[in-house]
């Protein structure tokens, strides 16, 4: 059975019929795909050539459901845009940085190693 012609052109500012966008997103399970991305995927140069359905017919919502499904599954869409932070680790830091833990340890140990009497308040001498 042929689908109804899609007349829902005005619903998106990019010119992509809203129902077509929803259909593609649902089939590809990619709600993150924007209208611009889908329009790029529906570009004539990359649109998959199938004998059964032309690009204009597809955009108008024509064709059998299986044909449309097959066609949507042949669309080249970009990978999900969900990046991770990847901090760079310096594996060859300068000697000062590498020795910093030892310097800190030395600085912590130093007061303890000093003679105790220096920490005792000096008693005032009678003049």
């Amino acid at each position: 059975m042929m689908r109804q012609e899609n007349t829902d052109f005005g619903s998106s500012p990019t010119g992509l019929p809203q129902s077509l966008g929803s259909e593609i997103r649902a089939v590809l399970k990619r709600p993150d795909l924007t209208d611009e991305t889908l329009l790029a995927a529906l570009d004539r140069d990359t649109f998959p050539v199938t004998a059964c359905l032309s690009l204009s017919d597809f955009k108008r919502g024509l064709g059998q459901p299986e044909q449309r499904l097959r066609l949507i599954r042949c669309l080249a869409v970009p990978a999900p845009q969900h990046g991770l932070e990847m901090p760079e680790h310096d594996l060859n830091p300068p000697l000062g940085v590498r020795m910093a833990p030892f310097v800190r340890l030395w600085q912590r140990l130093q007061p303890a190693a000093r003679a105790q009497m220096k920490q005792v308040p000096v008693t005032a001498r009678n003049q």
Partner: peptide
Amino acid sequence: GGRLFYRRREKNIGRKAGNIADFLTTSG
């Protein structure tokens, strides 16, 4: 569609490690 992706970097900064890092920072 939606399961197979292709992307090309024009400059292969960091070679293979950089290639994987680029994937992680965009789609990881």
